[in-house]
Every structure is written in structure tokens, then in C-alpha cells.
Design a protein around this nucleic acid. Structure first.
Lengths: 236, 236
DNA sequence: CCGATTCTCGTCAATAAGACGAATATTCGC
DNA sequence: GCGAATATTCGTCTTATTGACGAGAATCGG
């Protein structure tokens, strides 16, 4: 941090945007809101907003926007910073720098809660990223970055469990991998691999049978956060 | 990005800071500058500074500060965003949000170039991170994050070559891994592994002998950017 | 020329991944 | 109920990758 004379420091508007991802209906989906005012009125955008005051903490602003715009609670969700986007002209009104966060959620409850949440919708990322789909500002690029971060984190962390309900089966977990990666995994090898990672899953001792077929054991998230060794996507 | 009324948007000062890392004298070192004015006058800090104008691009500001404060050229160096730090109170003067970048450099030429570069020094990160060492603002935390990012990127990218001169030997490359990870690697297994990664190294056909012992083949960086499969640190 | 040094190639065992057979335990259709 | 279908879980075999290390090749210093 250098020593520019303070009277000349340019100030900019600072926003936080949220990429809230969930696995639903067989696809990775992202929460978007339909904008109510120009610019991009009526166009889908990431939920987010400006700092509430000059003294608001970034993480706090992200948690606040999450709750205001989607009705979700940040405590339950694990927000992490993605990166900061600040190209001049990305907002036609004025210079806006936006610090983006990603969050990973199990089945999102239908967003009914207060604030702007009325306009929140879940959109499959595959659809959001299509060239024909209109997304406000540079948010399509942000979505792409968030998705790539997610795919990559599945490889070397236990993030996948964050997409599952508190208790889940091995197949629930495998579904997350298959859907996020868009790649089929052998159920038997997957089972062996995951069981072998100490601290990833804690068996509850119970079983459920939700489909025809042998009932599956239920697990909870364990304390592990990294996968060792990593579970790599097939290189192609 | 939401739709707050524009007359109420708080504006903040935006800075970019740089974590320029290099491998030198058997340790991972970071470029720091001694601050010339309060706060933290005389204390070591990351090079960086405020946006030059409301319309300056973030990446441009990082490249400009790099050249101004250290005399290095951004073109040659590969700057990448680390993350953004914005806790209220991190700068005692006013609210400052800083977007941090990391850069990786082969042997840094002694910083003699213009601007504030006179005060630039290389400090081993091990020393910079010691509890007793005074570092301005929250820059010690930023340094720690930059180091961890670097260690981690060695695992699954070809980043290590960025710390080497344009032509380097297998041992030069192994030294980078050993120094950054603080861990010894078997030269024979390392050689086999690296040679097996297609596109990592391109042999020049030449050899050098800089020590007693069999002369080593010289390589240049190849087109590969990811390591497949990854080279994992020993879990411990 | 000789020993020390370092780079490179090669071997062998241990570990992990990929492909798949098969037993188990349920639901579904009849 | 009863067999067919389906999903979970355990186990086996083959192949690739890692870790540990032996040994030859090619230099330097004396």
C-alpha cells in the first residue's frame, strides 16, 4: 500500500455479488434475480448489491445481500470469496468494483423470503452460460468462473458434501460429482475411494431405501476438508 | 448487483497490492518496501498503491504499481489476482479495500529502477512471517495467503518453471519445489515424473555443468500449464 | 589419473485407479 | 406372494503411478 497523497485518491463504488450454486433436478443450478430497474432491466443477474456503508465489512455485506435477496442464511452456507471484477465500463452507470463470493447449498428452499427475493430464480448453469442467454453486466463470466472453481474444488476437497442434505447416501454424493462434472463415475470405485478417505463420511448407522434396490447407508459430513489423495476428473 | 439508489452508494478507496515472489539463496523470498510515510512509517509493506484514476483497470493498476515500485515489467511476469482484503480498520486512515495480486519471478534483478523502488528489498517469507517481524497493515496475512497459493499451485500446475530462468536444468526446477515446499524430493523420481508430463519441458539439446558432476540437460518451458497427474506434497 | 559429485536410467515393491463379477436387499408388476 | 428389476456394497483382477534405491555416465578438483 503506497503513499499517494490522500486528497487525490479516487473513490469507487464497491459491490458484492453472489454466485449461489446448488444441485437440483439433475443439474448444477445458480440463483439469479431478475433486475427491476435499468440498466439491464428485466435481465437476469447475480444477486448482490452495494456496500451498505463505508464501514461495512465485505464478508458481512455478502452475508447481508444473501439474506436480503435470496432469504438464505449465510451461517448455514459457507460463503467464500471467488475474485474481484473491476473492468472499467462493466457497469454503464459508473465505475463499480465488485467482490464476488460463491456459496454452495443443498436443495434451496423456494425463495419466498423478504426483500428482493421475490425475483430469485434457479437456472441451470448450462443454460445460463449458453451464448444466447442474456445475463446482465459481466455476470456470465463470473458464473463461468464460479462453476470452474466448483468443479475444481470437488477434486481436492470434500466440498461435494456441502451440496447434500445433512444426512445423505453414497449415491447422493456421487450424483453431485456426476452432475457438476458432467461425467459418469463407477459406483463401486467411487464407493471404495470415498470410504477410503478418512474423516470424509461418518456413518449414522441408519439406512434408507428411496428407490427400488438395496437400501443405502446414511452418512453425515466428517471433519475432513481435503481429499487425500485427490479425486481427479478424467483428463480429456 | 442490486439496485440501490445511487445517491446513497458509499464510495471507498481502492488499492492494489503486490506479492512478488522469487526463489533466491535457497529460500522463497518476497519483495517488500519500507514505508516512507505514516502510518507504519519505516515498516515493511507490500508494494502497491491506490488506483490512479476512477477509470483505471485493476490489472493495469497492478502492472503500473509493479513497475513503479519495483522496476519490474509486468509483461514478463504473469500477475494473477490473489484475493481482496477489505476489513474495516485495516488501514487506520480511512476505509481501504485492496485487491491483491501475486507474481512469480526468476532471480529478481536488484531493484534500482525509478520511483519508489529505492526502498524495495527481498525478504525470505519465513522471516517475514515470523511473529516477531513487523509488517504493515494486514500484509502479513496477505503474504501467508500468497505463499500458500504458491505452494498449492506447484502441485497441479507448471508454475515452478516461472521461478526459473528461460533455460534451466532439472535440478533448478527441483530446487524450486524443495525450497517452496520445504521438503526434499528424490532426484530420480522427480526426474521421471517431470519428464512424463507432456509439454512441461522442452529440451534445448544443450548441457551445462555448473558443479562437479555429470552435466545437466537444459530445458525451456513447454506449452503445458497443468500437471496431469498432479504432483502432491507428502501429507503430514 | 582418482575420488567425489551429480545427472540419468533402470528395477522392484507398494499403493492407487479402472474395469467389472457377484452377493445383498429392497421395490415393482403381476 | 413371487419373480424381475434395480440399487448398494463387497471383492477380484489388471494396469498405472508412486516411493525407495542401485548403478552407470559424465563431469570437476586435485
Amino acid at each position: 500500500m503506497s503513499d499517494g497523497p490522500e486528497w487525490s485518491i479516487p473513490e469507487v463504488a464497491l459491490a458484492v455479488d453472489l454466485a449461489v450454486l446448488t444441485v437440483h433436478d439433475g443439474s448444477l443450478q445458480i440463483m439469479l434475480v431478475k433486475r427491476g430497474i435499468p440498466p439491464y432491466e428485466g435481465v437476469l443477474a447475480l444477486p448482490g448489491g452495494f456496500l451498505a456503508s463505508t464501514s461495512e465489512d465485505l464478508d458481512h455485506a455478502a452475508a447481508r445481500e444473501l439474506s436480503e435477496e435470496t432469504g438464505l442464511e449465510a451461517k448455514a452456507l459457507h460463503l467464500e470469496q471467488l475474485r474481484t471484477y473491476g473492468a472499467p465500463g462493466r457497469d454503464p452507470r459508473q465505475r463499480v468494483i465488485t467482490v464476488c463470493y460463491v456459496a454452495f447449498s443443498p436443495r434451496l428452499p423456494t425463495p419466498t423470503a423478504g426483500g428482493d427475493a421475490r425475483a430469485a430464480v434457479l437456472v441451470p448453469v448450462e443454460k445460463a452460460l449458453r451464448p444466447r442467454t442474456q445475463i446482465a453486466f459481466d455476470h456470465k463470466k463470473i458464473i463461468a468462473d464460479a462453476v470452474e472453481r466448483t468443479r475444481s474444488k470437488l477434486e481436492y476437497t470434500t466440498l461435494a458434501a456441502a451440496f447434500c442434505a445433512p444426512e445423505f447416501t453414497m449415491t447422493d454424493l456421487r450424483d453431485v460429482y456426476e452432475i457438476v462434472w458432467g461425467e459418469e463415475l463407477d459406483p463401486r470405485n467411487f464407493h471404495r475411494k470415498i470410504i477410503g478417505v478418512e474423516g470424509f463420511l461418518v456413518p449414522t448407522g441408519e439406512r434408507v431405501s428411496r428407490q427400488p434396490g438395496r437400501p443405502a447407508a446414511l452418512y453425515r459430513r466428517g471433519p475432513a476438508t481435503v481429499l487425500h489423495p485427490a479425486m481427479l476428473r478424467s483428463r480429456s
